[in-house]
Simulated scan of single mutants.
Amino acid sequence: MRRFSPLLALLLPLLLAPLASAEAPQISPISAAMQKFAAEGKISGAVTLVAKEGKIIHHAADGKANLETDQPMKKETMFAIASMTKPITATAVMMLVDEGKLSLDDPVSKYLPEFADVKLKDGKAPSRPITFRDCMSHTAGFQGSQSFETSLADAAKDVATRPLLFDPGSNWSYSPGLTVAGEAVEVISGMPFEKFLETRLFQPLGMNDTTFYPNEEQRARTAQIYSPGDQPGTLKPSGNAYSDPSKVKGPNPSAGLVTTAADLVKFYQMMLDGGVASGKRYLSESAVAEMTKLQTGDLKTGFTAGCGWGLGFYLVREPQGVTGMLSPGTFGHGGAFGTQGWIDPDKKMIFVLMIQRSGFGNGDDSDVRKAFQTLATDAVKQ
């Protein structure tokens, strides 16, 4: 039998360690639950990721990305994350705040003049101007669709023509406020919105699969969106304009990004670490604190009980139901197609759920989300 030298015997475990740790350990009950949801026709498949104290402790792909082609779900499968785009847009705004190029309480009309003449539903002028704080906490009074088939500049102008539902700051209503904020980023920075994000956030963080305009290779690994089928327990494909770049004429700051779980966790870890990643500061600690503190006071907000809103982020105030396993102060966001991303600062945990479905009700209050988060938190208690 061949014998190793004493020195090699000492070094061998260290040499092999990177290979051994290249594959994240799995929380097997999470995969079992996702496979059960797929078998029941509630999802086609899922990519799930859990990080704890800066390390990925679970990253798994289960089920199918496309049922018609039998394409398996993979860790690198891409997903349309819809409104999970909003916190990323808010981050861009806060970068400019950090640089002194705008203030959260600046009137939006200072940079987008079309908002100087907005009117309430009764035709009267609002009691005060709309601010960036209003836009990013959904208290501006904006209404109407968050999707558009035009340029970002024209989409913002269209929002300005819609009557306000209420005086800015007096109430809460989910709205295209982040679309308006994203256009302001273009104007203030002098860069196309997608280029600002690419150069200031995505490239430095290594988020190479995060884009408004997926290329051919990325489209080929983007999961199909499914709706309830004609028979119970079945699924049928449903469309999504944002996964077809030929239909995207402008980046949608409220809903347009396509990405992977592995990319998102890099952004979330930076936020959890107070705006720093790999020694590079992206946001000041005060900017992160502002984004993740309650901005809506006692106003009644959506989409689950016991929650409120920060700037671009949805906050857990009083954990209950689908948030019952999370800590007060947990922040994150969901997307229209069921995707979820949440950061629990107390537990130092990140939860990323990537699925693609529509027509199943409130994605923020889904049984899939609850099962995923419950199994993840249970696993770290053991």
Rank of each mutant, 00 (worst) to 15 (best):
Q373C: 12
S366N: 01
F351P: 09
V368C: 00
V368Y: 00
K347W: 00
I355S: 00
F372D: 01
D365S: 13
Q356Y: 02
I350R: 07
R357S: 05
K370R: 13
K347T: 09
S358G: 01
D364R: 06
D346I: 10
D367S: 15
G363K: 07
K348W: 11
G361D: 04
A371W: 04
P345Q: 13
I355A: 00
D367W: 09
I355V: 15
I350P: 06
D364L: 11
D344T: 05
D346M: 09
M349C: 09
D365M: 08
R357C: 05
I355T: 13
F360T: 11
I350A: 10
A371R: 07
G363C: 02
D364P: 00
A371L: 09
R369L: 13
D367N: 14
P345T: 07
T374G: 04
G361M: 11
D365T: 06
R369F: 09
G361L: 10
D346W: 02
Q356W: 02
M354H: 01
D344S: 03
F372A: 05
D344G: 03
K370V: 03
F351K: 10
D367R: 14
A371Q: 10
R357N: 03
F372P: 01
L353G: 06
G359K: 06
F360E: 02
D344H: 04
F372S: 03
K347R: 13
F360N: 06
G363D: 01
S366W: 04
R357K: 11
F351Y: 15
G359E: 04
